[in-house]
Design a protein around this nucleic acid. Sequence first.
DNA 1: GTGCAGCGGTCGGCATTGTCGAACACTGAT
DNA 2: ATCAGTGTTCGACAATGCCGACCGCTGCAC
Lengths: 254, 254
Amino acid sequence: MAKSIQSLQRAAAVLRLLAGGERRLGLSDIASSLGLAKGTAHGILRTLQAEGFVEQDPVSGRYQLGAELLRLGNSYLDVHELRSRALVWTDDLARSSGESVHLGVLHLEGVLIVHHVFRPDDSRQVLEVGAMQPLHSTALGKVLAAYDPVARGEAVRGAREQLTARTVTDLEQFEAIVELTRSRGWATDVEETWEGVAAVAAPIHDRRRMPVGAIALTGAVERLCESGEVRPELITAVRECARSVSRDVGAGRF
Amino acid sequence: MAKSIQSLQRAAAVLRLLAGGERRLGLSDIASSLGLAKGTAHGILRTLQAEGFVEQDPVSGRYQLGAELLRLGNSYLDVHELRSRALVWTDDLARSSGESVHLGVLHLEGVLIVHHVFRPDDSRQVLEVGAMQPLHSTALGKVLAAYDPVARGEAVRGAREQLTARTVTDLEQFEAIVELTRSRGWATDVEETWEGVAAVAAPIHDRRRMPVGAIALTGAVERLCESGEVRPELITAVRECARSVSRDVGAGRF
DNA sequence: GTGCAGCGGTCGGCATTGTCGAACACTGAT
DNA sequence: ATCAGTGTTCGACAATGCCGACCGCTGCAC
């Protein structure tokens, strides 16, 4: 691959920096964090601001991400083929199981949630579309690591953070889980990422049997599990749903 | 304002073009649409792809928006101060009224939805966060046009598309509505944007009384309205909610 | 099978373009 | 009043990204 455009690389780094920092960032912080001259960083920010990718607080002068990113992110979802094909199936799964359903794809060093069906009751729930989940501890992540060599590489290479008491961080144990997942075709997460939360996931393949994403059923551990294991009928339902989406994706690819 | 960085402007134009076109676009289409040489467009796309802002279908070679945009758009929501302060109030409003609630801000020539609370029942609903609404026909848009001079300018200048039989497109009538909205402090949309859908909206101000957004209650016209008018208790509830958020925003700004 | 027309991708010369660092106006705290 | 910060502007320099011709490939048509 030939060389990238320098100013674009830097602009992308600025956006990622702003996305990482919780609070608004000042120009000097940004410039020094990226090793740029203040004037250079200012030029990039000025342009990003004019395009709506970045906003500036008029009183403090600090910068934060802009609204245009939200609009473009939404457009991304509109075009997302896997997501559109999964809509009805995931909806059915949430309805029949009474739990929330997530659709995730591999992105960078984690799982990006591209669709989220709320649990069908009146409880308060926050939408997680656009959020990232770790590869090593979540059901979605394990499934992707089991079928996608790139995901597996990231999970093995990356830091497997200890999120709860039950998180598996040891490399050998993790690889055994990946192996088990590939052989049986599904993965679970029983309080390995969040206390009290369990999940089951199954992979989605395209017609060349390449993994393109995963579907997960997530809910309170006391509802999903029986004596420490996820209830078999839920596992079946998730796998069934993932197979349906796979068929749908494969069929439409001509 | 000094000059913008050319390559960034062009990259932003590429992203917007990809966001606009429903389908994936080819390199030549992009280059000719923006009046660029193919080599130039390719350099920009190559960099955007490396950064994750654009993805390329390996078989057709066509380009579409990338996952990084979704992630960044989500980060934008995390930092959004107005949204975070409005969360609890809008939730209460949806709960007490039994209808869905939207929080919108002015962006470009329309209203950008930054928060959406689903109607609290089991019906299928699509999340509209990140979507745009027109200024001239929606309740949110009218409120923003009434209080924000920039929004008003956009609404007056822009094309006021006829969306339903009841949409007001005439400039004079529209300005009368804006005037009425400002004097009474709220706006409605009874089947002016979508058939069968009605809405009420009220403005959110910061402590300098500058408009920063608007809150709307949206639902089926037969539930929200009585003899062609939105029910008074709903109008009161929306205004109350908007005032609460305004107080919250104003109080936290020190 | 063979031609052609379209695609995406590459390369190198030219000059436009973005970079850099110093100087600027301004704010707020010392 | 001073000072240490901030975000911003500016101009000179050369590195940078732009352009247009060229390449290899695919797929359609004949």
